[in-house]
Structures are given as structure tokens and as C-alpha cells.
């Protein structure tokens, strides 16, 4: 594996290898010495053209716990604010001899584009409304820790699907892992090409959660309503959205006993998720954050350790 650009690039074996590696990486979070040596002498640059707290800090922690040198470059305070183009910025950073770039950009497809310009490994940390593969991996990791094998599990993803890179990556990865996905959103927030995605869709949250429409539900993933990406009126009022698509305490009771609630964060409490759901026993929001470091350690390990030439072909899995 040379790059991690899309959750769709991962076949089942590679996805499971990352998740299994993450399980082992998770153990060091409870150790006194949180340091492992495999990426000693490697340099990772976090190139963030868009704001981020959890993704950037967890990539930074992940790299540092694996002994890599991690440098953060953000658009604010860099030459990007002086008008330098994306290509020039990326080539400048890459020319310093970095081994991997972790990139977030506000334009969909930007990370795929720049992966063609550089020789080093590129990890997509979120590009516009397109993909966020490490988020999908950590969601799958969290789901697996609660549900076990995800084959034939039914995961419902609710909310602002149109603007959600998390939803796209999750649909692709969960499908690869054998789970069934149902997307629930108001018609205005359901993307136009959704019919070609490997999932079912619904506009009715109550019917879906109660299992009447698409079968019993094993997990619910709430998406953030991304006001910063919305230019027009996608729904009349916040209150109306919350009534139709918010995870209220009443909707929580529709769920089966074992079904966890996930949210990629940051949460809009009272809009897409009620505090009862966010802080309840089903909530795995903080587990997701914790899994984020382990999963990103696993991704960096799988990309950067091992022989350089083995990364082009199929790698050794024995």
C-alpha cells in the first residue's frame, strides 16, 4: 500500500490487517512508556489546509508514539496565506525529504491530485466532502470492539450525508467488511448520486431505527450538520431538523439493546444528537476518539514500515 486516499482502496484483507494492527497498538495507550520504535528516523508532515483538532492531534500523537518525527503545517501562518499554490506548497514540503504527507484540504479530490505530484506516501485526512478514510477505519474499529465481526451487521448513518466525507468513506469500508448500510437523511441532504452507492436509503428515521423499513439495526452513526459547507436553505429551521432527524431520547428507545451510538464529532448537541444519546451508555463517542490514535498508528505503520520497494506491489502479509 503506497497511499491511503480512499476507503474504497482497501480490500477486505488490508482493512482487517489495519484493524488487527490497531488492536495491538491500542494496548500501548495504557502503558507507562508510550513509545514504539518502528518509524524511528522517518518524517511525517501533517499538511492541514482546513481546521482540525482531533484528526490532526491524533495523527501527531500516532506518529510520535511510533517514533517518527512529526511536523505540523497549517494553511494559517504558512506561505499558503501569501498566495502560494497547492502544488508549490506540496512540492516544497516534499522536497525537504519527508516520508509521508498527511493532508486535509477543503477541496474534494485535492489529496488524490497531489498524491500524483510527490514520491512520498500520502494519507488522506479528509478532502472536502469526498472522503475521510481513517475516520471510517476508526468507526469500524469502534463498531468491531462492541459488535465483533461486522459481516451482515446493519449500520444506519443519519444526517447531512451530502456534505459528509465521513458517510462516503464509511459506506465504502463497511461494505467491504460485509456490513449493510442504510443512509437516512432529508431529501435535501441526500446526495444526488446515492443510488450508485452500495447501500440502501431512507427519508424516515423512525421507521428505519425501529427496523420496520430495512431490518433490525445494529448501530447508529449520527453525522454532524455541517453549517460551514451549507450555502442555502437545506432545511427550514434547526428545530425542524432536530424533530425529523435528531437522535432524541425517544428514538434511542427504538434501538435494540446492543446497538451503540457513534458520532464523528464535533457534536451539535440538541441538533443532530440529544445529550441523552451523546452521554448515555450506548454512546461510543469517546471510544471513537481513543480508537483514532490506535487506528492512525496502524495506518502509518502499514504504510511506512517495511521495505520501500515492497510498498509498490502487493505486500507480504505473513
Amino acid at each position: 500500500m503506497k497511499h491511503l486516499l480512499s476507503a474504497g482502496d482497501l480490500d477486505r484483507d488490508e482493512a482487517l490487517a489495519i484493524l488487527d494492527t490497531a488492536t495491538q497498538m491500542h494496548a500501548i495507550q495504557t502503558r507507562e512508556v508510550k513509545k514504539l520504535p518502528p518509524l524511528r528516523g522517518r518524517t511525517i508532515v501533517n499538511l492541514f489546509f482546513e481546521d482540525s483538532t482531533r484528526t490532526r492531534s491524533s495523527f501527531e500523537i500516532a506518529g510520535k508514539w511510533l517514533s517518527a518525527d512529526v511536523i505540523n503545517v497549517s494553511a494559517k501562518g504558512s506561505s499558503v496565506s501569501k498566495g502560494e499554490s497547492l502544488r508549490d506548497t506540496v512540492l516544497t514540503v516534499a522536497a525537504m525529504g519527508v516520508d509521508a504527507l498527511v493532508v486535509r484540504h477543503h477541496a474534494s479530490g485535492a489529496v488524490q491530485q497531489l498524491a500524483g505530484w510527490v514520491d512520498c506516501h500520502v494519507v488522506n485526512a479528509g478532502d472536502g466532502t469526498h472522503e475521510h478514510p481513517t475516520q471510517a477505519l476508526l468507526d469500524a474499529y469502534t463498531l468491531r470492539s462492541r459488535l465483533g465481526d461486522l459481516a451482515d451487521r446493519h449500520v444506519v448513518i443519519v444526517g447531512d450525508v451530502t456534505h459528509s466525507r465521513v458517510a462516503r468513506s464509511n459506506v465504502l469500508l463497511l461494505n467491504t467488511l460485509g456490513a449493510r448500510v442504510t443512509l437516512v437523511a432529508p431529501p435535501t441532504l441526500m446526495p444526488s448520486g446515492v443510488a450508485s452507492w452500495p447501500c440502501t436509503t431512507s427519508w424516515d428515521l423512525d421507521a428505519t431505527l425501529s427496523g420496520k423499513e430495512h431490518g433490525d439495526v445494529d448501530a447508529v452513526m449520527m453525522l454532524r450538520v455541517q453549517r460551514e459547507r451549507m450555502s442555502g436553505g437545506y432545511f427550514p429551521t434547526e428545530r425542524e431538523y432536530a424533530i425529523g432527524y435528531g437522535l432524541s431520547p425517544r428514538r434511542l428507545d427504538l434501538l435494540a439493546e446492543h446497538a451503540p451510538v457513534l458520532h464523528p464529532g464535533p457534536m451539535n448537541r440538541g441538533l443532530e444528537i440529544s445529550s441523552a444519546a451523546a452521554d448515555g451508555l450506548r454512546s461510543m463517542v469517546l471510544d471513537q476518539v481513543q480508537a483514532g490514535v490506535a487506528v492512525r498508528m496502524a495506518v502509518l505503520y502499514r504504510l511506512l514500515s517495511g521495505a520501500a520497494d515492497s510498498s509498490t506491489g502487493s505486500e507480504v502479509t505473513v
Binding site: 490487517a17 488487527d20 495491538q24 520504535p37 518502528p38 514500515s305 517495511g306 521495505a307 505486500e315 505473513v318
Partner: peptide, 21 residues
């Protein structure tokens, strides 16, 4: 005690899966 991450030949071959510690 899994020693995969501590091996001195980690970079000589493809990516190795981890054992359990």
C-alpha cells in the same frame, strides 16, 4: 511479548503483522 516493532530487520522486508503483547 511481541517483538515485531523492535526488530532490526523491519525495513528489509514487507510489512509484518503484529503479535500479541
Amino acid at each position: 511479548l511481541d517483538i515485531t516493532l523492535y526488530r532490526d530487520d523491519l525495513r528489509l522486508r514487507g510489512v509484518r503483522p503484529l503479535g500479541e503483547t
